[in-house]
Simulated scan of single mutants.
Amino acid sequence: MKYYVENFLIALQQVAKGNKRYFIWLAFLSVLIATGIIAYIGQVEKGLITTGMRDQVSWGFYISNFTFLVGVAAAAVLLVVPAYVYHFKPIKEIVLFGELLAITAITMCIMFIMVDLGQPLRVWHILPVIGGMNFPSSLLAWDVIVLNSYLILNALVASYVVCKFFTGKEYKMSVIGPLVMISIPLRSASIL
């Protein structure tokens, strides 16, 4: 754990370096994030009526973005299979970026599901043991299980590879191989 904390602090130091344009870009992104948080707080206070989901355009925009992000997350398999399974050297150099992109896309997909629920208090309804998920008949339940499993597997693989990269050592396929092989069907199932 100490090693993870040290590497996280090193990464934070790298993020804090940059020119004036870089910090302007970070400030712009922070304003966008703050705007989204304020809009979500308004949705929690006033209800789902603020989203305009009754309108076909608003609902279509939401669903199309969710579907696009699921596809982006699943597309990482195009990098993972040649890199980890077939040991194709040129792809190994960029496979970590694909994994991190998949983690980002899955996180945004899960946030879309959270916003679609309306209130954070409704989350317990879709938890596997506590709530009534209506699995496997509910597509939302399917998305919750598959996307969260896929996120956990991607996070484990990416964190292991990044830690090995920082130490200058080669990662062991015996460690990440089983996780990669499990994640490949999950990638396919996430687009269903």
Rank of each mutant, 00 (worst) to 15 (best):
M1S: 10
M1Y: 01
V5I: 14
E6A: 07
N7H: 10
F8G: 10
F8I: 08
I10L: 10
A11F: 13
Q13M: 05
Q13W: 09
Q13S: 06
K17E: 14
G18K: 07
G18N: 04
K20R: 13
I24E: 09
I24W: 08
W25K: 15
L26P: 04
I33D: 06
G36T: 04
I38T: 14
Y40F: 12
G42D: 11
G42P: 00
Q43C: 02
L48W: 12
L48R: 14
L48P: 11
I49G: 12
I49L: 15
T50A: 12
M53Q: 12
M53V: 12
R54T: 15
V57Q: 06
W59S: 14
Y62R: 08
S64G: 09
F66W: 12
T67Q: 11
F68Y: 14
F68P: 02
F68H: 09
L69Y: 07
L69I: 00
V72F: 08
A73F: 05
A74V: 00
A74F: 01
V81G: 04
V81C: 02
A83N: 07
Y84Q: 02
Y86E: 08
K89M: 00
P90L: 01
K92F: 08
L96T: 07
L96F: 10
G98Q: 01
G98S: 06
L101A: 09
A102P: 01
A102S: 10
I103K: 01
I103Q: 04
I106C: 02
I106A: 10
T107I: 13
T107F: 03
M108A: 12
V115K: 00
D116N: 13
L117Q: 02
L117F: 02
G118H: 12
G118F: 01
Q119W: 13
P120D: 11
V123R: 08
L127V: 05
L127C: 00
P128E: 05
G131Q: 08
G131T: 08
G132C: 03
G132W: 07
N134F: 13
P136E: 12
S138V: 09
S138A: 05
L139S: 15
L140I: 13
A141K: 08
A141N: 09
W142G: 02
V146I: 11
S149A: 14
S149H: 07
Y150V: 02
L151V: 04
V157F: 03
S159Y: 04
S159M: 08
Y160M: 00
V161T: 09
K164V: 04
F165V: 11
T167S: 15
E170Y: 03
Y171P: 03
M173I: 14
V175F: 06
I176L: 00
I176T: 00
V180E: 03
I182R: 01
R187M: 15
S188Q: 13
I191E: 11
I191K: 01
